[in-house]
Amino acid sequence: MDQKVLVVDQQKCTGCRQCELVCSVYHTGASNPSRSRVRVVKWEQAGIYLPMTCNHCEKAFCVEVCPTKACHREPEKENRVVIDRNLCIGCRTCIIACPFGQPFFDAQERVTVKCDYCDGDPQCVAFCNVKAISFVDADRAQMAKKKEAANKLADLLKQARG
């Protein structure tokens, strides 16, 4: 199966944190953003909001450091990296290892949790009113930016030709 990824358009995000809410409801049944797998990082002074989700990295540090193989890759399911809560011992090594500040320690379940793409239908994508988060094929993730860059280049070439 082709790999799909979550793409965040930070320019569109308003910082409403609805994604956090629906994520926690979907995964835990509680509307508690502190148990969400997505976190909106806010820089209020600068007016910048950035929803942070797991990148399911190709070379995932969390998989490398997990002592029980609880954190593993599932190539058959969008090549996602998931944590098996039945194997997780709650050592939090993956949290320290992840450069994106990702897996979170669920204080109630006493294990580490992370984004699992909601089994192929990410709720953060479905409920984001401004469409700041999208779930697209990995090879098309940068398509919009590539188109924009190509258009700019075409304009420059036109100008150069006179």
Binding site: E64, C66, T68, K69, C88, G90, V111
Partner: peptide
């Protein structure tokens, strides 16, 4: 550890990390 008794899982997978 979050779940203490599961430390055995780490002992059973010595080559992981």
């Amino acid at each position: 550890l979050g779940i203490k008794w599961r430390f055995m899982y780490a002992c059973l997978n010595p080559r992981t990390s």
